[in-house]
Design a protein around this nucleic acid. Structure first.
Lengths: 193, 193
DNA sequence: TATGAAAACGAACGTTCGTACTTTTTAGTG
DNA sequence: CACTAAAAAGTACGAACGTTCGTTTTCATA
């Protein structure tokens, strides 16, 4: 790999950490340069605009996400098992990111800010929801689940968001027991015996 | 009312609109001055710091919220009816704010930014969750509901967050039918016959 | 090893923002 | 009406940020 591509990957790795811990806007070029031990302009040259930096950070986050939760479950069957394992990997990934999801955070940050960043965030979240929905649909097709796939995913994703939010607020056991309990209930309600 | 207090209320009203539509950080003093037709320093004099402005906007939002969803349900009994009406008012208020909640947005914006603003946001959300929990507990005491009050509130609030988030993403019917359907299911699962 | 391109640097610019200071205008009161 | 305190305006400053430009250093390769 070229030197340039190599350092760029390093930059993106720490940039993702910073952006996840703070936000895509608080991810400042000068600050990122300091953290990575580079000069502002030297770092800037890799992206040529802050917007591009933000986009590339999101793309980088996406590759990490895919490696962490899509790939490890790729060959799992049947669909219900795959779904459950995916949720586990999803939570592990979420935890590895310091208990926050940059896509969810960015969706709040950019929801009123038209542009390519917002479009990308929305697209990624749509893809993820569609992916989950597809798995549930397949589980239904296989006869191991029943109900409306989209409604199930709606409730599943809601629990994820609720867990993230209420854990921050300090709601009792929001992060662990409450989510798993609700998830168990959700699954069993839509499971075929 | 003094002239000062009067214009301050006007400022806060439009400030809440701006902050809800964008964010508490994007709520800029100069911009707010332009919108309200004042000078930057004239407006600044009412708050003496941006942090105070943010705090007062949140307090103002709180008073609106109380007027909109706490007061109208204050005398309703039994607790289950009060809970259902509260949820209705809650959604109405949410819609009146342009389908976004400044407290939720601020919780994401300030989650990593220690200070009085973050503390206030967290406190308000805690109070709201405790308020909901209290109502559910009372409904349980009255024999019209059963289950773990906190778990029920956890799932209820999760659905609210999911509805807000997924409506933005464009998930089918997230905002209306899906929330109400899930809510109905949640209630009926914990209702005593 | 020599060379040209890529990468990194240093300094500076334009803009935006919060804030401080001073002055002018407004409004309430004796 | 006069007077004073509050409210609003005008101006300015310093810091932070994204970005540009010219230069220097590093690296891959011939």
């Amino acid at each position: 790999m070229n030197k340039g591509k190599h350092t760029k990957q390093q930059i993106l790795a720490t940039a993702l950490n910073v952006a996840t811990a703070t936000s895509l806007n608080d991810l400042t070029i000068g600050g990122l340069a300091t953290v990575t031990g580079m000069s502002k302009s030297g770092l800037f040259g890799h992206f040529n605009s802050k917007e591009n930096l933000q986009l590339e950070v999101l793309e980088y986050a996406q590759t990490i996400f895919i490696e962490s939760v899509i790939v490890p479950t790729n060959q799992v069957k049947p669909a219900l098992d795959k779904l459950l394992l995916t949720i586990e990997c999803w939570l592990d990934w979420y935890q590895s990111q310091g208990n926050s999801c940059i896509f969810v955070a960015a969706s709040v940050e950019f929801d009123d800010q038209p542009g390519v960043v917002r479009d990308l965030v929305k697209k990624r979240l749509q893809k993820w929801l569609a992916y989950l929905t597809g798995m549930v649909e397949q589980a239904i097709d296989e006869g191991s689940m029943r109900g409306d796939a989209k409604q199930i995913v709606f409730e599943l994703y809601s629990l994820y968001l609720g867990s993230e939010h209420m854990a921050w607020v300090g709601f009792e056991d929001a992060q662990h027991s409450r989510f798993k309990l609700a998830l168990k209930s959700l699954i069993s309600r839509h499971q075929h015996n």
